[in-house]
Design a protein around this nucleic acid. Sequence first.
DNA 1: ATCAGTGCAAACGATTTGCACCTCG
DNA 2: CGAGGTGCAAATCGTTTGCACTGAT
Lengths: 156, 156
Amino acid sequence: MKNECDPKNKKMAEEFPGGLKWTKQRKRVYQILKDVTEPLSAAQIYARMDAWEQEQYAVSTIYRILAAFEENSLVDKTTWMGEGTVVYELKHPGHVHYAVCLECHKRIPLEHCPLHMSASHLHPADGKQEYEADGFTVVSHKIELYGYCKECQEKR
Amino acid sequence: MKNECDPKNKKMAEEFPGGLKWTKQRKRVYQILKDVTEPLSAAQIYARMDAWEQEQYAVSTIYRILAAFEENSLVDKTTWMGEGTVVYELKHPGHVHYAVCLECHKRIPLEHCPLHMSASHLHPADGKQEYEADGFTVVSHKIELYGYCKECQEKR
DNA sequence: ATCAGTGCAAACGATTTGCACCTCG
DNA sequence: CGAGGTGCAAATCGTTTGCACTGAT
């Protein structure tokens, strides 16, 4: 075989796990997730799919693609706290947290993880690490801050 | 008016916001949430409702009650990580966070909030307090830790 | 050519809503 | 008594699944 997987366009290959077929719709989902800064729901992704071209896509496909991506550790599956809808985001090298405005529901990604001890204390990198009761080994964490964004504060 | 709200039985009155009628089904939901240590889904609550007596309850009622409770800040609405289902728990005086075992899905309430700056830095008590980008005023926060509990670590 | 991946439509589970009746205050 | 709360059933929303077909390898 040739290099990696470049029948014609070598540009779109990137980092893709073995068993996954690099189909048109998967490229698109992947690209969409890459272009945004915050997690998207299946519905949102679906909306952006045919926004680009007038192709025919099925919602079910999106779900299946996202499931496949998740199994291959390409994406993280989450939910906003307090909401039922599931959202997906490309697995970031580092994790991201958000501040959520209680008024306008805007979500502001935080630059730094507010958990001070994070990298060193909470991450698995350096093997077992205890935290709080019962020798629980923390692998990852999720944080959401709630409050009011600049704009909404001013409207008062 | 009398004291607080004691027509006959003063015992079951407790801390209930003004506009809410203290009905049989609301008492029950409230009591159920009070008796458990971890958040419950509407379905779980519903299950426990008629487990007690053979009364007739409607699922929709549960949802409406929970919505009402939430609006009146009696409960917190959350979701487990990556799962779509919404769960409710009584609003604790202080906030509570959990460590969730990725293996057995056990939830361990944390004694202390892992956010160091919490009380001082993240709480609204002392008025405006900036945190990260854009003068966002943090009012509250939610944290979940993921990892492996003692038992599940040993099974390896 | 083959089998994973896809579209479509039906199935499903969780949550919401309209309406008539009931009950707390 | 009257507004708010409830039961019931139908409606809606997000997600999943079965099946026949298509396309990437």
